[in-house]
Design a protein around this nucleic acid. Structure first.
Lengths: 218, 218, 218, 218
DNA sequence: TATGAATGAGAGTTCATTCAT
DNA sequence: CATGAATGAACTCTCATTCAT
């Protein structure tokens, strides 16, 4: 009797509540991402995030245990997005080298250019936050390294490529990520020279591809 | 009016006082550099800096207007050191490409490896500090770009090299600096694998040189 | 208007509902008592009480207006229990003095020893809660005083005893309650010396009886 | 030259500063004692204490690490005062029993009556504060027990008194302290009946002495 | 000029209470 | 009547900066 009949109606209401919960979580996350990137982790108050997400401070703490967890969640989100981007770029390419070029262009065109702030979070504010965040960033880098390694070893052209050493993939992942992160920071300066932006993007990718090639052995 | 009486005695004492003043300034700066790098800008208290420099809090404010100016001074110091390092590397080399390699190795061997924290200051903690610091970093990057540009255009071998475009030097400067900064961060992880460190250093430089070469035209 | 139709069926269901209501109220009260006593009033969250009583937070507020009322209800419960205990002890005794001793032992054996926390609620956390609670505690003490006074004046042995003054009963009630409350607190320390517990109990009752006797005049 | 001459003047200024420091510490402590006792530990804000002591919030934290340490310091202060009081009372008496009576009256006249709030801190607010405070209170009680034990065993009359058992002194210390603590609480009610106050005091001491005597063996 | 105690605005976090479902 | 997510006021503690000595 206490159990409500499992009609469509109730199920629907439960579903809707679940959907709203996800939406609210997402809106808090988005607000945090924007504010962290714009003003920095420390300067961003929970109150600001709550305000931007149009919820109360308490609600933020209902979805995230504390400020650091919020930052970690933001980072995870960005990492997921980046890896998807790269995966798609490689999937569309016919060879490893083309994949690299496409991924490079995708990073630039679809990440650094439209959302330079997202990329900055990977670098900025890392010291002094806490171990949880540092671990999250480390995990992101490890996954990136695996992705790069995997992509380079099992090219669509059937024959994988060989590297100078067993840790070359790691070096490549780190150097390449570094460039994009730094690029995000410089985008804030460069965006004022719109005529050069395309050239900068193209040449940066050229630099990256050149760097990667130099660590390959035929 | 401002001039003190120019007797010998006073002059000597004035000189000594001036010397002591410089020494004290330097000791505050060093303390700040070490602590900022180790614990991050935010977590470092003025009190800590004063303690390490063996002066009082008030004295720190006698030499630097505020915390941000202290960070800016630290950054300027590091920038100077880096440019000297690169200048010496290019000076010792017989060709532009050799200069690039030497500079790369110097960065790695004489900066990232012994002082990974110094390098981190270029990246971490940048957001949310203040405009003064952001400007200082921008200036550092602009000077770096000039250096790279100059070095590449006027090689010791007489004939300068040509680049894909007029802003290639800038792209190179930015990408290369990015890698070293990021390397500083990863050094903290990699230092636990001492066997790989040398390989990592060598391959990183290879990557950089490969990147630079790919933006050159014969 | 308020009256529901008096059909048998509904009446039965109404009764059951009433019973369930009482049960639920009781389970909330018990949960509160345990948690208040274990963790203190301040540290106990309404959420915890709801959780232990297996109801929702909102339901707690359906039965009690606010947190203070809950504490007051808990106190009333304990007070009732104590007075019953004392009443029974006196009822079983053949003389006033024997009643005093029996009551003392009952306090110790059936309250302080098994539920030291209950007794603590009378003392701890009293300041800063609110007037409602302070009043509840005052009422408890007034009733205790009446009980003591009544018990001492109308002993089973026919002839009541005389006191030093008109407020001696009050003094006795207060001092005796004080000892038991404090004993509850010390039980936490003493329970680690099980060998001494019985002696402590016996001697405490001796102290109390001695105190009471000294305020009597033959 | 940097060393200032150790003239009387400087020494005096250092002394004065030290004195002022102690005064300020004391004024913070007093403010805390009064507010904790009046409004309870939880309800008392650091801001209130700072306000009453006419210093800033930061200054409070310059003298005490955190709120709990402040409470602990307050307790230690009171404990010291109580033990001094008792010591003096016993010192003035010619026999152990007289000492007990004098100490009891001193408690009542010089502590409970003028400062009922002080006494309350020993009981109230104990749960939910922290281990540091609980330890402080336990230490206070242990010292009290020692004091009582010592006083009873080595009376001025040359021959110490014998007790029912080895832990009687402990039982006496605990019961007696309990009464005074509780008395402090009841003083708030009783103060409205000024005519009875003296009687209450006298009879309470009688109760205590009666209790103690009943644990003695000739 | 050096000192370091005092300042006080500011931020993260908690939790009693409410109310739409 | 039950639910539990949302609310937001309140509180503790930090630390850059000032200023009397």
């Amino acid at each position: 009797m206490k159990n409500p009949p499992k009609t469509n109606k109730l199920s629907a209401s439960a579903l809707r509540r679940e959907r709203e919960k996800q939406l609210r979580r997402q809106s808090i996350l988005s607000a945090a991402e924007i504010l962290f990137a714009h003003n920095g982790y420390r300067k961003t108050k929970i109150e600001d995030i709550a305000g931007k997400a149009e919820v109360s401070v308490g609600t933020v703490y209902g979805y995230f245990q504390n400020k650091e967890e919020l930052l970690t969640a933001v980072l995870d989100d960005i990492g997921l997005y980046i890896r998807k981007l790269a995966g798609k770029a490689f999937g569309d390419a016919d060879s490893v080298l083309e994949g690299i070029e496409r991924a490079g262009m995708a990073f630039f065109e679809e990440l650094c250019r439209p959302y330079p702030e997202k990329v900055l979070l990977l670098c900025d504010e890392s010291i002094g936050v806490g171990d949880q965040f540092v671990n999250a960033r480390r995990n992101f880098m490890l996954k990136m390294t695996e992705d790069v390694h995997g992509a380079l070893m099992k090219g669509k052209d059937g024959l994988g490529l060989k590297f100078a050493s067993g840790i070359s993939a790691e070096v490549i992942a780190v150097c390449t990520t570094a460039i994009f992160v730094w690029l995000g920071m410089y985008y804030k300066i460069w965006r004022k020279r719109p005529g050069d932006i395309n050239t900068i993007g193209r040449e940066t990718v050229t630099y990256i591809v050149g760097g990667i090639k130099s660590l390959m052995v035929s």
